[in-house]
Write a protein that binds this DNA or RNA. Structure first.
Length: 729
RNA sequence: GCGCGAUUAGCUCAGUUGGUUAGAGCGCUACAUUGACAUUGUAGAGGUCACUGGUUCAAGUCCAGUAUCGCGCACCA
């Protein structure tokens, strides 16, 4: 049966078929390169190239940022597969603790179900049900982007293997005294009803009131007068002469609930130039104040509870929200003449939860913390020594700064969805008197109710996905450490730094050699994409309209690591034109080489028996294109090896379109009519076309494969798929 | 307050270790239509590379400073 070439690249009909073929043929597996390398039967024949996907949250729909990251990852994987490396792209998803719990909670509420009525077990069951329904969609979307993942190795942060990894990691850290339980003032989100880590707190500018209050012998300022009920000290700077004689003394302070005693301490945390230089200290409801209290042995008095309401010990204010209590207390202080004056337009930052946007109420709470200092030192060393390279390099400075100022990481969360902490207590008060950390708790012990921060399991991702803690598992042995970690710069601290720390501590190795950080995707006017602006682009819409290849090229070309990328439909449309150019150049070559019909697109019968070009028959134009081709090929290879994807893509684009198509194909039209050099010209066309297709494949996997299959009809020795062909030497 | 980035064509951005006439996409102008492709081709217009100073035979690129915009971190008691 004769093949016909359409006039245009029909991405809609063909892309998913090609993807299914690839997946079924097993080309996505790293073992394919073993099969291909002739005569080699040992696994070590091909050097591994491994990327673990940044696992998308089960909650979400893939947005264009995912498409960008996935494209970069898949580009590297496909390039290395063509180089003959044993390339493994590990797919998976993240259970996303708070986010997922919130989504399912909301969904159940709509159905009139309160999670507290059905209880933990039932609720978690509901989340699993929801995960099964929603999770699959994301994986289909990754396929649509062309991600050549080995789906047999797909992992989920809450599956059995990874849960085991989390338990082993926790136990290891506990045994090495790198994780501990402590009562501390932590960032508490009353809405999510859980503690969160320092870096999960965001700050929002707000105009509020700044109250200058008469405070015994002091006048001092506060934006939160309601916390006065929990004050236990006043702090001043050690060098502040104004208060020198007062340090160490105790004073009775008049308050709305009667007088109370505070001690004056000197602490460097106080800025003598701000306010009056004297600070009221509320250890229970300010993390800084808590730290001051620890240094000076000051008592902690909690007056706000975990719902953000005043507690029993707050007299007439008990039960009020902090906001209500503030108004009442201010009014009462006015009456008592305790307010000196008020700044009405005081601009300050308020702490809000990164997840729900609700205001953070610091409260004292028993939580688990990871000791970060010892881990951070080694993590610093790995990058400093060059063992790990961060691209672009300037992020190394950001990384160092974060590590140098690190605080202990609060890893326990008061949620139900996640890895329950593998700690058991002998008594129901969950005191630490008798505690068991491990896997086989003694009879009658009660497990800690809390779960671990989502990022705790994410931190293990590069090795937990490969079989760790089973150090002798084949995948772990062969593919760990992974090669490249490609992700957004916005999660350098949340994720990348913690993977490095956990990798070093738990496996004794760095988890990856190169960190490639991409930027945020913005709209074509460089504005942040958002629902409210209505400028968010849906990658699936774009794929349907212009094809995956066009989207991929549009995202890659003209973008650079660490820098935000602006993209709009017009850019993608431009690259759609390019994918069509690839299709049509191939159509031309195919029809002329087989002596087919350019009108109908019907392929002819002629075949090429061998591809050896006769040097003696080369025309001036032939020589010229061969030189230009070689230059382009060297450029592209060089750029890809240096992670310069945009430049590689641009070189290819320009060579293919404006050199090969615009110049050589035009010249070849004359040569193909000359019997003497006709065959040689065909060979040159095929050589440059087929090799260009291979180089274009990581950028535009679908159209290159579609065309490759056409070329195989009449060209000897082409691999059964372009995916597993060989990068031109 | 500390740190980082950006400033290049009308718009959005590339520009690798300093080296001829500074590039791309989109947009714009003129011409070309049964010719692989109009999702095209040919030709073209459009830039004092934010500003000031310095290093150099040579600076968009390196150094110092200024301005504007953006981001991160810390703090705001």
């Amino acid at each position: 049966m004769k093949k016909t070439f359409n006039k245009n690249w029909q991405h809609l009909e063909i892309e998913s078929k090609l993807y299914n073929n690839w997946e079924q043929s097993g080309y996505f597996k790293p073992e394919i390169s073993q099969k291909l390398s002739a005569g080699s039967d040992q696994l070590s024949a091909n050097k591994p190239f491994v990327i673990a996907i940044p696992p998308p949250n089960v909650t979400g729909k893939l947005h264009i940022g995912h498409a960008y990251g996935t494209t970069l990852q898949d580009l590297m994987i496909r390039y290395h597969r063509l180089l003959g490396d044993a390339s493994l792209y590990i797919p998976g998803m993240d259970h996303a603790g708070i986010a997922t719990q919130a989504v399912v909670d909301k969904k159940l509420r709509k159905e009139g179900i309160n999670k507290n009525d059905i209880g933990r077990e039932k609720f978690v069951e509901e989340v699993w049900k929801w995960k099964e329904e929603s999770g699959g969609k994301i994986l289909q979307q990754l396929r649509a982007i062309g991600a050549s993942c080995d789906w047999d190795r797909e992992r989920f942060t809450l599956d059995a293997g990874l849960s085991d990894a989390v338990r082993q990691a926790f136990i290891h850290l506990y045994e090495k005294d790198l994780i501990y339980r402590g009562l501390r003032t932590v960032n508490w989100c009353p809405k999510c009803h859980t503690a969160i880590a320092d870096d999960e707190v965001e700050y929002k500018k707000e105009i509020g009131k700044f109250y200058w209050i008469k405070y015994g012998p002091f006048i001092l300022a506060t934006s939160r007068p309601e916390t006065k009920l929990g004050d236990t000290a006043v702090a001043v700077h050690p060098g502040d002469k104004r208060y020198k004689d007062m340090v160490g003394k105790k004073y009775m302070i008049p308050g709305v609930l009667g007088d109370f005693e505070v001690e004056v301490v000197a602490d460097n945390a106080v800025d003598p130039n701000f306010g009056s230089g004297a600070v009221k200290v509320t250890p229970a409801h300010s993390i800084i104040d808590f730290e001051i209290s620890q240094r000076h042995n000051i008592p902690i008095k909690q007056v706000i509870d975990d719902r953000g309401r005043m507690m029993e010990n707050s007299g007439k204010y008990a039960g009020m929200t902090t906001k209500e209590a503030r108004e009442e207390i201010v009014a009462d202080m006015m009456k008592l003449g305790l307010i000196d004056h008020v700044d009405e337009n005081y601009e300050h930052n308020i702490a809000v939860c990164y997840r729900c946007g609700g205001q953070i109420e610091p409260i004292p709470s028993k939580q688990w913390f990871v000791k970060m200092k010892p881990l951070a030192e080694k993590a610093r060393q790995a990058v400093e020594s060059g063992e790990i390279e961060i691209i672009p390099k300037r992020f190394e400075k950001v990384y160092f700064h974060w590590l140098d100022n690190i605080r202990d990481w609060c890893v326990s969360r008061q949620l139900w969805w996640g890895h329950q902490i593998p700690v058991w207590y002998s008594d129901s008060e969950l005191s630490e008197e008798k505690i068991y950390v491990g896997e086989n708790p003694p009879e009658g012990y009660i497990q800690d109710e809390d779960v671990l921060d989502t990022w705790f399991s994410s931190a293990l991702w590069p090795f937990s996905t490969l079989g760790w803690p089973n150090g002798s598992s084949e995948d772990y042995q062969r593919f760990y450490p992974t090669t490249v970690m490609e992700t957004g710069y916005d999660i350098l601290f949340f994720w990348v730094a913690r993977m490095i720390m956990m990798g070093q501590e738990l496996t004794g190795k760095i988890p990856f050699k190169t960190v490639y950080l991409h930027g945020l995707v913005r709209d074509e006017h460089n504005r942040k994409m958002s629902k409210s602006l209505g400028n968010a682009l849906d990658p699936l819409d774009l794929i349907a309209k212009y094809g995956t290849d066009a989207l991929r090229m549009g995202l890659i070309i003209g973008s650079t690591p660490g820098q935000d990328v602006a993209i709009g439909e017009s850019k993608i449309r431009g690259y759609r034109n390019f994918t069509n150019k690839i299709w049509n150049a191939s159509r031309f070559v195919s029809l002329r080489v087989t002596d087919g019909d350019l009108q109908s697109g019907e392929q002819g019968e002629s075949k090429i028996s061998d591809l050896n070009i006769d040097e003696k028959l080369l025309t001036k134009d032939d020589r010229e294109i061969l030189v230009l081709y070689k230059t382009a090929k060297d450029q592209v290879t060089k750029h890809l090896n240096k992670f310069e994807f945009s430049l590689a893509g641009e070189s290819l684009y320009n060579f293919f379109w404006h050199t090969f198509c615009d110049q050589y194909i035009e010249k070849s039209k004359l040569q193909l009519d000359d019997e003497k050099i006709k065959d040689n010209t065909k060979k040159i066309l095929i050589k440059i076309l087929s090799e260009s297709l291979i180089m274009l494949h990581p950028f535009a996997p679908f159209v290159t494969e579609a065309v490759w299959q056409e070329l195989r009809e009449f060209t000897p020795n082409l691999a059964e798929s372009i995916m597993i062909s060989t990068w031109p030497k």
